[in-house]
Design a protein around this nucleic acid. Structure first.
Lengths: 194, 194, 194, 194
DNA sequence: CATGAATGAGGCTTCATTCAT
DNA sequence: AATGAATGAAGCCTCATTCAT
């Protein structure tokens, strides 16, 4: 009963699931919808995923590793200055604004933590890691005199809230323009006036 | 066919609907769940609401007016200084952190705008009003020399994103502590304390 | 619990029921529909009729007596000639073509005899009476040399079938024209060529 | 989404639907009833038919083609005489008396034309074709001196009414006997034996 | 008598999952 | 591995009937 871990078709189904779960939520999305979107027959979905719940869980959790590597860059800490900070912020904002489908399902899960508790746990863990990284950034920035006196925890809270909200709040807006506008505000959260 | 607009039972159902939609989303929430939670029989739900969809739509849109009056205070503009600004921010944060159920359903809708397009429209309209109010606040603050040079639109974007994200991101955290922490960050978005 | 036998409102409800049962059948017609059509409140229907089933049964059976008197005229037998026969046929045809609503519900019941067995019995009884009357007419006509040699039973069968079919088959056609056309055919069933 | 057009099971469901719709009408007949009668699971009905309404519509309209071929025989016109006419009448009567289930649903639809307007249209079309065929028969019969002077349209009306009524009126009667009795009356409608 | 809110049984339909091919 | 017909549990909604006002 072991499901194949990788294959062309599995990926098609996975992407289709991600897209549709993001757009319509869990219950509204049907296996039929997914199979159609993936150009795959109905039964094939069950060849690669045990059931709908597992597919959803994997759509949310599988990409976490990739994103961890992308969003948490130790180099930022090693070689810290205003330039690397701004690069980091831009990277974060772009990611949150571009990975629309993925962020949506994440927000979907976060919005119903009791319902998807198991999935939520894995997200929480990543969220903690990310927050802790940001706090490190703030700490480092303060120590090096690049950032003003701040409470690293508070900055972390605010920054994460800001990033999540950006994705949630501005669905239709053109990306680049928004990145610039929100970028300035993000710097302000770190205490940088420009 | 005309459904009674107000009654003890209607309100029970409404509140139960809001609570459950917030917790489990639209599809997962059943009319049976709602009627049980409201201590009302199954059929009674349909005495007050045409169908599930309408109940959901009303759960999202009916409170808007009340919140408009609460969140958009023209007095803030008439008598503007750092104190009134901080009061406003505190009020906003408290609201976004306390009206948990309501904010969750709003975020649920925003996360699936195509699915709930009609409901989304009414939310968008309110969001525009709110953003425009914030921009007025920034403009007034700048004119009076209370706020530093800023792009009002950018501050509006950032502030709204921040508020929405606050609610979404920190579900379990104790309110007061978080209000303080996030409050400082909110001021920073207006350019205060940088 | 005795229901009032006659009243302005009862009659309104009765007529509305007849009309709607004729148009939409039993199950599709709701008490709400009937009360609305009768300009009466919902609950009032139950003031005059025990339940829906009884209302339907009465809509079909109550008018029978009136129609018996109209359709079965002993005078036709007492003073028989071609003229009275033609008068009778015209009367019958007009009745079957004009009492649209009533004939429709009758045909509705006849079409589902197992479903409305009790109601059907009363209709059957009337149908027997009517058939027997027609056989008498034929017998009398033959004895008086007005009608050709015929099997009275067969004429009765055919004539009733013809009348019922007329009502069923030609819903939209203009009455007078049809009465003339079908009248000639009815005479033929009695063996009269014109 | 495409439903299989033919299969053992589809046919079982179709026949069961026809039988039950004929016996109890549309609303009273449940999908559960049909599936049970067809020895099929509940859900299987929806594998072959989109919904109840479509099943009903098809029960009424699908057999039309077959019956068109059976009831409308051009040969009757090509080789016309009293014998072929009587054969035709017998054929028609047998059909109307034997296809009990099918005729009942037809009459059910005709009795509620507003309710089943789409289905009714297809029936009307066939009815026109049939009537036109009968008129041709009468015209031909007159031209060949086999039938007396008649108004073909009137004969058509009367004959169709007669056939429809035969089925409706005599539900319980033994077929053969009735065919003979009604046969004679049918000839009379064509002006034969008067 | 008149009214209509309250109730819940019952029907249609959807859809995840199974399984034979 | 791939397919899709078969299944039936579960949800929404309708509506006859009751009953308190």
């Amino acid at each position: 009963m072991a499901k194949p871990r990788s294959s062309e078709k599995r990926n098609m189904i996975f992407q289709a699931g991600l897209r549709l779960f993001a757009q319509n939520g869990y219950s509204k999305t049907t296996i039929k919808d997914i199979s159609t979107e993936a150009n795959v027959s109905f039964g094939t979905v069950f060849t690669y995923f045990t059931n709908k719940e597992e597919l959803f869980h994997l759509c949310v959790t599988e990409p976490i590793d990739e994103f961890r590597n992308y969003l948490i860059e130790p180099e930022t800490l090693e070689n810290f200055n205003l330039g690397t900070l701004k690069e980091m912020v831009t990277k974060h904002l772009n990611f949150f604004l571009e990975k629309e489908d993925y962020l949506r399902v994440i927000q979907y899960v976060i919005g119903q933590p009791e319902r998807f508790s198991e999935t939520m746990e894995e997200l929480d863990q990543f969220s903690d890691e990310f927050m802790s990284f940001i706090q490190n950034v703030v700490q480092t920035g303060m120590e090096q005199g690049v950032l003003p006196e701040s409470n690293p925890e508070e900055v972390g809270y605010g920054y994460l809230a800001f990033l999540m909200g950006a994705r949630l709040t501005f669905t239709d807006y053109p990306g680049v323009q928004l990145t610039n506008a929100l970028g300035k505000q993000a710097y302000r959260l770190f205490g940088i006036g420009i």
